[in-house]
């Protein structure tokens, strides 16, 4: 990867504000996520991290500001359009389709990349048949990629917790994203699982997908991300490398507090 390519912003958060009534959840936040990097957003509970994710993915359009993805403004786009543009996400509280098999969860993820029309589905045309085959193969590949192929035909709700998180990542990858948003992917993980998860994140980036993650665990973030943005009370209070952020006085006060 050339230096220039690395400097390309894939996602630009431009003076984004989100108000809920009198509460300002995200307050005039600006930063860039660069192509091919692992970028982390950290901050204490209630800092507005997930709100920002919801703003990017169209679940809650921002009150003010612009969101630009790959040079195209996506502010206010519907969630399914955002997914089609190439942004996929996972959820802080796992939101799998519980009564669908792992395989079907991942196949569903490919929905917006499929072309079968109603007619094709009704009559099982050869084109539809081939597409289903392709989608199934790809789903198996992804289940293998995240390491849960042994649960292919199990209902998502019956998977162990850690595998559910992995399945959510597989489902998000199925949308064939350029940018993957992970909302606290390591929440509730043991240290060993966290290490494995970070291995998976590196594997994803190696495939050319930019990863933008929210994380609570400072150790995980420091180990994996080159650049970090810190939110507190909806405001951006710091941006930089893990080293810079770690030494930032406001971050220490707001986030790390007395631990250091």
């Amino acid at each position: 990867m050339t230096v220039e390519a690395a400097a390309d912003p894939i996602l630009r958060i431009d003076h984004v504000t989100k108000r809920f009534g009198g509460l300002v959840a995200v307050d005039d936040v600006t930063f860039d996520v660069k192509k091919g990097e692992i970028f982390a957003l950290i901050g204490p509970n209630g800092a507005g991290k997930t709100t920002l994710f919801n703003g990017i993915t169209g679940i809650f359009p921002p009150t003010a500001g612009r969101i630009v993805f790959q040079g195209r403004e996506i502010t206010g786009a519907k969630p399914h359009q955002v997914a089609a543009f190439g942004i996929a996400r996972t959820f802080q509280n796992i939101r799998l389709f519980e009564y669908m098999s792992s395989l079907d969860n991942v196949r569903l993820g490919q929905h917006c990349r499929m072309h079968a029309k109603l007619w094709d589905s009704l009559f099982k045309t050869p084109a539809e048949h081939r597409e289903e085959q392709r989608v199934t193969d790809r789903a198996m590949e992804l289940l293998q990629f995240v390491g849960i192929e042994q649960y292919t035909h199990i209902y998502a709700r019956n998977l162990p917790y850690g595998s559910q998180r992995r399945l959510e990542i597989a489902r998000a990858l199925a949308t064939n994203p350029a940018l993957l948003l992970l909302d606290e992917p390591a929440a509730g993980f043991t240290p060993q699982e966290k290490v494995e998860l970070m291995g998976l994140v590196h594997k994803i980036v190696d495939q050319g997908i930019t990863v933008f993650l929210i994380e609570h665990d400072m150790k995980v973030v420091m180990g994996v991300s080159r650049r970090i943005v810190v939110l507190d009370h909806g405001e951006k209070i710091a941006e930089g490398t893990p080293e810079q952020v770690r030494r930032d006085q406001r971050v220490i006060e707001a986030y790390l507090g007395t631990q250091h």
């Binding site: 993915t57 169209g58 679940i59 519907k78 969630p79 399914h80 955002v82 997914a83 089609a84 996929a88 996400r89 959820f91 939101r95 799998l96 389709f97 519980e98 009564y99 669908m100 569903l108 993820g109 929905h111 917006c112 990349r113 489902r171 998000a172 199925a174 949308t175």
Partner: peptide, 12 residues
């Protein structure tokens, strides 16, 4: 099952 998740996965 989950409209929000379905929408986020690209389902209109």
């Amino acid at each position: 099952e989950d409209e929000v998740a379905a929408a986020a996965m690209g389902v209109n």
